[in-house]
């Protein structure tokens, strides 16, 4: 009952947050458009007219599922966005999974064997590699990727290796770069290292009981928090990565919409992105409560 109440409260807050983000993005986008006043002179739209227009847009979006009409391509917005959105979503989710798979074992190893040669040299190397920004790493890797996994001569031979490289390397870059892996390793190492010195874990080790279950369960807490808070960053990184590697997808749609002053497309992209971020935050709350029930207020 208490958990259901917490979840309901989070969902109501999420709707309010979505309203706030879309409204401010609409106000910002309004500065790019213009309207005519009584004498037929171009002006930037006033706050009141923008609010009225936003009200119309949000009611049709919520009640009819109609995200608006693109003025440049003369198509429905949901039609344009749905086409490029799948790739972005796969990129983001895949990158988060990759960063978890890399960071959690390395963090546990770094905590358990903190004095070994491997940890002393490999972990700082990981920090260094991970500290590179996404766009830089992507530009470094791109020539190699074009040479070995490029799509240009796929007519000749297609192997599973090439397909995996074609889709996998951008995902791995997005999962490693921008300090995601470094931050995760640091937090996991801190938590697990603190736990190993606890009395009950030392007693369990002395009795040769299995401690890995407790360790992993507690190491998951910071990982959950980081992954969900990194979600918005991963969305932004996915735009850059698909711009560099695939030159198609939602990033091109967004840039074209901005170039040709097409507000509804950008608004819908912003709304879907903030919806995803809000869902990630709710998931974070639920998972945190599931791992550690004390955090339920």
């Amino acid at each position: 009952m208490k958990t259901a109440r917490t979840v309901l409260k989070e969902i109501i807050i999420a709707f309010l947050v979505l309203f706030g983000t879309t409204f401010t993005i609409y106000l910002l986008l309004g500065q790019l458009t213009y309207e005519h006043d009584d004498e037929g002179v171009r002006t930037t739209p006033s706050f009141i007219s923008l609010t009225v227009a936003y009200g119309e847009w949000i009611t049709s979006a919520v009640f009819k599922g109609d995200l608006g009409h693109s003025t440049t391509t003369n198509r429905d917005v949901s039609d344009i966005i749905g086409h490029g959105f799948r790739q972005t979503f796969i990129l983001v989710i895949g990158s988060l999974v990759v960063s978890i798979l890399i960071a959690v074992p390395l963090g546990v190893i770094a905590a358990v064997r903190s004095n070994s040669l491997f940890v002393r040299f490999f972990i700082p190397g990981t920090y260094l590699f991970s500290a590179l920004p996404v766009f830089l790493l992507a530009i470094f890797i791109r020539p190699f990727w074009v040479q070995h996994f490029g799509i240009l001569d796929w007519y000749d031979d297609v192997s599973w290796f090439r397909v995996a490289g074609y889709f996998g390397i951008p995902i791995i870059i997005l999962g490693i770069a921008d300090g995601v892996v470094g931050e995760m390793i640091k937090h996991v190492r801190e938590v697990v290292g603190g736990m190993i010195r606890e009395n009950y874990i030392r007693a369990a080790i002395a009795r040769s009981a299995r401690v890995s279950k407790h360790l992993i369960k507690n190491a998951l807490l910071p990982v959950v928090t980081i992954v969900t808070s990194r979600f918005s960053y991963a969305l932004g990184g996915a735009l850059i990565v698909e711009y560099i590697f695939y030159s198609q997808g939602i990033s091109i749609v967004a840039l074209d919409a901005l170039k040709y002053r097409d507000p509804h497309v950008l608004l819908a992209i912003g709304m879907i992105f903030s919806l995803l971020i809000v869902i990630a935050n709710i998931l974070n709350r639920i998972l945190t409560v599931a791992v550690d029930p004390r955090t339920r207020e």
Binding site: V17, L18, G20, T21, I25, L28, L29, L32, S229, S232, Y233, L235, G236, L239, I240, A254, L255, L258, L266, I269, G270, F273, S274, I277, V278, N281
Partner: peptide, 12 residues
């Protein structure tokens, strides 16, 4: 927290 940062930054 819920702003899509890149989109907002490009608009600004």
């Amino acid at each position: 927290d819920a702003y899509p940062r890149v989109v907002v930054l490009i608009i600004v």
